[in-house]
Design a protein around this nucleic acid. Sequence first.
DNA 1: TTTCAATAGGACCAAATAGTCCATAAGAGC
DNA 2: GCTCTTATGGACTATTTGGTCCTATTGAAA
Lengths: 218, 218
Amino acid sequence: MSDEQVAAPTNRRRISQRGIATRERILDAANRLMLVRGVNATTLDDIREASQTSKSQLYHHFADKQELVRALVKYRGALVLQRERAGLERLRSFSGLVRWRNALVQANSLNNGKYGCGLGSMALELSDQDEQARSSLSETFAAWEKLISDGLHRMRDSGLLRPDADPEKLATGLMGALQGGYLLANAAHDVAPMEVALDMALDHIKSLLVQPSGEPTR
Amino acid sequence: MSDEQVAAPTNRRRISQRGIATRERILDAANRLMLVRGVNATTLDDIREASQTSKSQLYHHFADKQELVRALVKYRGALVLQRERAGLERLRSFSGLVRWRNALVQANSLNNGKYGCGLGSMALELSDQDEQARSSLSETFAAWEKLISDGLHRMRDSGLLRPDADPEKLATGLMGALQGGYLLANAAHDVAPMEVALDMALDHIKSLLVQPSGEPTR
DNA sequence: TTTCAATAGGACCAAATAGTCCATAAGAGC
DNA sequence: GCTCTTATGGACTATTTGGTCCTATTGAAA
């Protein structure tokens, strides 16, 4: 969470530490507010107040609201990938996948299913409204899925997963179950459907594990 | 689509056919616009213009924007359930499930994955903003899942599905895969991930079919 | 210490947008 | 045909909100 590079500006001749910190405060406030209220329902005044800044600072660091939102998409994407990298880069076993599932479920259950996935909710809200944001989000999802599929590849290479299992498709399916789970949990304000959705995906992957006893069946 | 009851008002002493038609036009316009732009990004003036009505009519039929949105939630929910009932009430076989999947995928591919599911996108946008809308959406999802689980129950009762298969959980998982698929397809502007997500769920259900040859395996 | 760009404060502006109101038309029931 | 409620048109208002601008302050480099 305390990663300054994530908020680093794009192109500016000279920038001070103080400026970077302000930019970070703005992005952090936008991140929190827009997760709860959604992008369009969050006003710049909300962000200004929550970030303890002023209008001129908002417009000093971002050309307009759209630019701020696009920066937030990258910011949040970097945070999620950072978190997920920590949880997935050592994935080598089915139980590792279960631990990953448990961590996501537990985090979501702390909110009773509210807010959903920061990336998923932005994706639905922005995809048909801002092509640049959509494509950025799409790349982040791809990178996220790659973290999963890399782990599945490791499992397949080590003989845990059957050779005919398709790590890329499994990763997409798992991400679908995760995002759908977030959505249903958000609608229900209850984490339960997220668990069910994820467990179906995990059961499917389990069925593709090489069985120590007997031949695996279709 | 041309179902007037769906737009029927809640409580009004007297209402004429003309009034009902106007109300329907407003809801229909709101339905179309808010599917594309989202709820918060759609203005009442947009709706007024698209529905060929006037401000006084909007406020004659709905107390305020929130009421209109809540009515739209029910309206859209009724439309989706009507459509899904048609596709699911005779579900009795795995191939029926595949046909259902194909219909949804095909419809979504016509938009190249855009817009997503009318219910899912509203759920993410409104759930943390309007408790009444959230609970209404949650009920609709439950009814939708019931249509699926009823079909799965029929399959289980007829011996197609293994006795230990849990229709309710499978229905939730399938709905999760569907909603997650919609979301990923929307982010990618490509229907492909929706297919992958749904197929993973279908594969899982397939693995729970009673095998004509040999004993089914875990 | 001086200088000057970067940073910050906050009043102000203009457009968008939700919502009000009143006059008029339409049409159902008597 | 008369009457009275419903339905409609659209101007108008108030508020919200994105965005501008001018001034002051800070702090790093010369």
